[in-house]
């Protein structure tokens, strides 16, 4: 390739973000530009919260952020993390991108960079090493939360927050220093949760979702030849890449669910109708709080929320 972009990632080598999503992005860029643009993934250049600096200072060309790792910086994007939406990660990622275009970009939370894809993992559930049968069982559970909306939901559920970086989740759960972790189903494979968190307590639509953003150095993008820019903008960046990532999340969730059911000693408990109704009330409170935060940025948060819900509900139909 004429242009080889350095893509920074902080996730474990075999994580779907690396092997499916970022590699998928490279494939899409190669195809769209007839091989003129390619990319190379570099692991461990900087810790997660420093990823945006890598882009701003030209140490890498593309990176992926987990917004929840930077409290205070990303408020508007919490919109997609809210509980209550029904639908796949694919639908959510597409809706996220559209909502960003139409509403959220105004807050300019990724300022100085070029946003090339937005995605969210599938519904976030509670994985525990103690049996959890009802919503009430969650009260007092020492749980690793990922930041963002998951922290607000955790407070409603009565979870006790434990802060550990993702690679330490296995150790923390196996030693009993934590009882549970909040993650999407797919991470059961990435973090070997089938061994240390044999119980999944599942809320249809999830307790929360987790927002990711793929950013490119604006400077690097500007330096590309015009035909390449056009090809990338039309065929890769934005909705196509976001959708591709959402599909990869859904696939990882499906794989993990199958592996969990096949493990024999793992159980997946789905919340009862009654508990779903109880959680809907909690979700309502979280939604009101977060939408108020987003409204404070001068965004019509309610309209944005309704647009996401609507897009997801009608997605693929």
């Amino acid at each position: 390739a004429d242009i080889n972009l350095t893509i920074s990632s902080w996730l474990p080598p075999a994580h779907p973000i690396n092997v499916d999503m970022l590699e998928g992005l490279i494939d899409m860029m190669e195809q769209a530009t007839d091989g003129k643009v390619s990319g190379e993934i570099k692991l461990g250049l900087a810790p997660p919260p420093a990823q945006m600096d890598l882009i701003l200072d030209g140490a890498a060309d593309i990176t992926i952020l987990f917004n929840g790792y930077q409290p205070g910086r990303f408020i508007a994007t919490k919109l997609i993390e809210l509980p209550g939406y029904q639908g796949s990660a694919e639908a959510a990622s597409v809706a996220y991108w559209r909502a960003h275009e139409q509403f959220l970009a105004k807050a300019d939370e990724f300022k100085g960079t070029k946003v090339i894809a937005l995605t969210t993992h599938g519904p976030g559930q509670i994985h525990s090493n103690k049996p959890v049968k009802t919503l009430a069982d969650l009260n007092g559970l020492k749980t690793r939360l990922g930041g963002g909306v998951s922290a607000d939901v955790g407070a409603e559920l009565g979870l006790v927050g434990i802060q550990v970086p993702a690679p330490k989740v296995y150790e923390t759960l196996s030693s009993g220093a934590a009882d549970a972790v909040a993650m999407n189903m797919g991470e059961r494979l990435s973090f070997k949760l089938n061994e240390v968190a044999k119980n999944v307590y599942e809320m249809p639509g999830g307790f929360y979702r987790g927002a990711f953003a793929v950013l490119m150095s604006q400077e690097k993008f500007d330096s590309l030849p015009d035909d390449v820019k056009t090809a990338l903008e039309e065929k890769v960046f934005g909705e196509p890449a976001s959708k591709m990532m959402g599909i990869a999340w859904d696939k990882s969730d499906d794989d993990a669910r199958a592996a969990t059911l096949a493990a024999g000693d793992n159980t997946i408990v789905t919340a009862s109708e009654e508990d779903q109704a109880k959680f809907a009330e909690m979700a309502e409170r979280v939604r009101a709080k977060v939408l108020a935060e987003i409204s404070d940025l001068g965004i019509d948060a309610q309209a944005a929320h309704d647009m996401v819900a609507e897009t997801m509900a009608s997605y693929g139909k």
């Binding site: 250049l45 900087a46 810790p47 919260p49 420093a50 600096d53 890598l54 701003l56 200072d57 030209g58 140490a59 802060q163 970086p165």
Partner: peptide, 22 residues
């Protein structure tokens, strides 16, 4: 490898992040 601006930035980030590594 990356130019002075990126290098000095990476160095500074390491100074900041290493000292706050839990």
């Amino acid at each position: 490898e990356t130019g002075f601006r990126a290098a000095i930035s990476l160095v500074s980030r390491l100074i900041i992040d290493t000292s706050q590594d839990y």
